[in-house]
């Protein structure tokens, strides 16, 4: 469909939202709300409407509303998505279940604590900005040495929530952190020895069991699973070379 006529008839959709406030709504429960959804209405739009008109205490993380900041990752009908681009009618169900991400401590309602995630991302050494690979034929204007753009990874924590290993091994660096380490290696942002020291251990690149679910759920085309595998290949090659140099 083209952009003309994207809006269409609305239909009622029930949102079943996990609620939790330590010591207040404890144990957690599900609250249900009904919204009239047009074809463009996202899960985030629905949460905003619920917060504005039905329950101002509903908590969820959100910021940019266009899949660029990575704050609104949550489980929609059991699958991790960015609420800002997950359209309600696309779910194909009359009831849509909204839950917080797994593998991160729950703060309240749909909000999880991003601290453990940030602690695994920060030491990877990936820069925020990379060289742009779009339109390689384009000339650059005076004063601009290279076209740059932000990295694909928006650090949304979705891959960790979907990773079966991260769910049982809290120490695991996780798909995003390993993919970031691979980027830092490829761009030369950090020396290879440092990157390998960060990932070459039980909770690093070897903890991955190749479920590749991270690549399947990633909303930003990072394909972390693929990068973990590529990182392993680089690491093995590095070790083999080092072994023969020593010998």
């Amino acid at each position: 469909m083209n952009q003309h006529g994207r809006f269409g008839p609305t239909r009622p959709i029930t949102l079943k939202i996990l609620r939790y406030k330590p010591g207040f709504i404890d144990p957690p429960r599900y609250d249900t709300f009904q919204v009239q959804a047009d074809p463009l209405m996202t899960v985030l739009d629905a949460l905003e409407e619920i917060k504005a008109t039905a329950d101002s205490t509903l908590l969820y993380r959100h910021s940019c509303h266009h899949a660029s900041c990575g704050t609104c990752g949550m489980k929609v009908n059991g699958r991790e998505q960015l609420a800002c681009v997950a359209r309600l009618v696309d779910e194909g169900t009359d009831e849509v279940v909204v839950e917080p991400l797994g593998s991160a401590p729950l703060v309240a309602d749909l909000v999880v604590d991003m601290t453990p995630f940030a602690l695994h991302m920060a030491p990877s050494g990936m820069a925020l900005v990379r060289d742009s690979e779009f339109m390689p034929e384009a000339e650059r204007p005076a004063g601009v040495e290279r076209y740059t753009r932000y990295e694909d990874c928006i650090e949304c924590n979705i891959c960790l929530s979907a990773c079966p290993v991260a769910n049982t091994n809290p120490g695991f660096i996780g798909p995003a952190g390993l993919a970031a380490a691979y980027r830092a290696l490829v761009t030369g942002e950090r020396p290879a020895a440092e990157v390998f020291a960060y990932v070459d251990h039980d909770d690093g690149v070897w903890r991955c069991h190749s479920a590749m679910e991270c690549s399947a759920v990633c909303p930003s085309d990072v394909q972390p699973g693929h990068k973990i595998m590529a990182l392993r290949r680089e690491l093995v090659a590095y070790k083999v070379k080092r072994f023969f140099k020593r010998g």
């Binding site: 029930t14 939790y20 144990p27 957690p28 429960r29 599900y30 609250d31 249900t32 709300f33 009904q34 919204v35 629905a46 409407e49 619920i50 504005a52 008109t53 039905a54 329950d55 729950l106």
Partner: peptide, 12 residues
């Protein structure tokens, strides 16, 4: 948005 019902599900 219309709240429908509030029910407890027990465990997290």
């Amino acid at each position: 948005a219309v709240p429908i019902q509030q029910k407890s599900t027990g465990a997290r």
